[in-house]
Design a protein around this nucleic acid. Structure first.
Lengths: 338, 338
DNA sequence: CTCAGTCTGTACAACGTTGGAAGGAACGGC
DNA sequence: GCCGTTCCTTCCAACGTTGTACAGACTGAG
């Protein structure tokens, strides 16, 4: 049986509350009493029951983080950052992955962990705005990823359009003018995918470079295999880009693999830019130029937004758009051919 | 304010317990009563308070998983598997990463989450056996990774020596006889690293092939950069292996990067075998032959071991060694030169 | 029509903790 | 020696839930 305050109190010959006072460093406890109680605590090996404390305090100190897929290094790295930042605030993280499934994202957002988590950080893929509108749950929520809406939840994003334009501009600056975009799925609610495509189009148009549909590579998802398929399909169709901007690093890596198989050399024949700056991109045979979102900042903004909401429950949450920085990291995949 | 059973009870004009009975699908409730209470529940939007339920039941349905580093795809993929398996048993997973730091591993194993988790799955890197010996915590524990000890905790592993021998045998079968091992750290408690080295040595010795120390590449850690450094150091020392067996895929990938930089072609000049079968290995310019541990099985064994311990608390836990399967996955990095 | 047996709903206590208020001892000042 | 203060400790209630015991109502058999 677990040791409780009661056991310690009996052992020390004091009341339960006095033991509690010692445990919580309450100030008005005489040194003698403190020592006596502490001795009993040590002897019995007492450890506070967090569940009871949570019930009493109405707070658990647990945040949930729901991402589409932990196997995706971007989300794994982001999760690591969230865990670290949460730890700085004495919070722990309960992790969930939704598989990017809309149903499961709805379930998670509806708070099926009600009462056990203090807040939820959700990185949705297919969730629609209206799915959140009728939300009855009182658990504070923060959304990751740029979205357009008028809901009372903070959301953290980087400026996807600007980032995509930066990537495309970089390629244009390298003398490329048949720049493909890989990673569109018309049937997906994933806004960043649309925004990055928009940025690609905007930058090309602004530079007076054609942006034909043939240079847009649709994918079924956003993993390495999807990138490989999309690249292969484009090449099979006789389209020969001299550069590729991919939705994310995984798609870019899949594309590079196919380019390599087809004897097209990166960066000489085709330059490649990814998105996310996952560690994997730094160590391929050809290291990957990429847009690097500040993951640490994203984690920090998310956790602190939740804390803020928890502090002043009374006031209506802001529904702010919090923006994290990004930067272009140049590596081998866009070197050469000045 | 949150809606509680009491509020629903008042609204429906019944006792608290009756509402509880409805919520828990207790059998002896008349349909009429059930409907009336359900209506009140729906009107008020009642959701059970899990914390209170946990306190009452003495169970939280939360498992903790502590791994060294989520940025390491092996652990990220493993974590994903654990989350899935846990979900099948209606359990959720609280994730922690220790950074492979002994202090932090001790802290985690000592159960600083006491009362909030039902069990702990720990994947230690530097934890020593004696660190666990005085464990006072009553939270069920399962250890991941092969270890030698006599403690009352189940541990899940694959047969590292056999796996390493399989990898080396594969290379020998490809006509390689200067096979390096990359990823030793003499100062580390990480047993699998030692076991894999032992397997390398055993297999070479059994085949009558020399296993000189010059072919052993020490590393500071087990990430891509460590593999790259170790490979570079070995080549700089004038050692020219015709194959590399690496502690894990990350080390292998780092090594391949350096081989590529130095103009050594994989697999023609140097064949490479990794360990872990992370997704990343399948999509490099040269896909990576690797030992593939059954991660799903590992996750399943771990979760089910905890459940078993929870069921029969009374009996002493077994301290069993549970073994998961592995297999060699052949890819491009060991093709050719029959 | 009575009695046993079954069914339905209620009252109470308990899980382990903490906040608030009240109790009691020690102490100094008069 | 009495009183007011201060300081420390204890008592009580509450967080929201569920298990146990029990009371009342209804059913069917004798």
């Amino acid at each position: 049986m677990r040791v409780s305050l009661k056991d310690v109190a009996e052992r020390a010959g004091v009341s339960i509350k006095t033991v509690s006072n010692v445990v919580n460093n309450y100030q008005h406890v005489t040194p003698g009493m403190r020592a006596r109680v502490q001795a009993a605590i040590d002897e019995l090996g007492y450890r506070p029951n967090m569940t009871a404390r949570h019930l009493r305090k109405g707070r658990t100190g647990i945040l949930a983080l729901a991402v589409p897929e932990l196997g995706n290094p971007y989300f794994a790295e982001l999760a690591g950052a969230v865990i670290d930042v949460a730890a700085e605030h004495d919070l722990t993280v309960l992790l969930d992955h939704t598989g990017g499934d809309r149903e499961r994202e709805m379930l998670v957002s509806q708070g099926f962990r009600a009462g056990v988590i203090d807040g939820l950080i959700l990185s949705p893929l297919e969730l629609e705005v209206e799915d959140l509108r009728g939300r009855e749950d009182d658990v504070p929520l923060v959304l990751l990823g740029e979205r357009e809406y008028d809901l009372p939840y903070d959301h953290i994003a980087i400026d996807n359009v600007a980032a995509a334009r930066t990537a495309v501009r970089h390629l244009l600056g390298r003398g490329r003018n048949r720049i493909a975009y890989l990673g569109v799925r018309t049937d997906s609610a994933n806004r960043p995918a649309h925004l990055r495509l928009a940025g690609w189009r905007e930058e090309l148009t602004a530079a007076g470079v054609p942006a034909p549909d043939s240079l847009i590579g649709p994918t079924g998802g956003w993993d390495r295999g999807d990138g490989a398929e999309a690249m292969a399909r484009m090449l099979d169709a006789g389209v020969r880009p001299d550069a590729v901007f991919a939705y994310n690093d995984l798609v870019a890596i899949g594309a590079m693999r196919v380019l390599h198989e087809r004897g097209l050399r990166v960066p000489w024949d085709v330059a490649v830019v990814g998105f996310d700056d996952i560690a994997e991109g730094r160590f391929g045979a050809v290291s990957l130029t990429t847009i690097s979102p500040d993951k640490r900042a994203i984690a920090r903004l998310a956790v602190e937004s939740l804390l803020r909401t928890l502090e002043n429950r009374a006031e209506a949450p802001a529904g702010r758009e919090l923006t994290a920085e990004f930067r272009l990291v140049e590596r081998e995949s866009t070197l050469g051919r000045r």
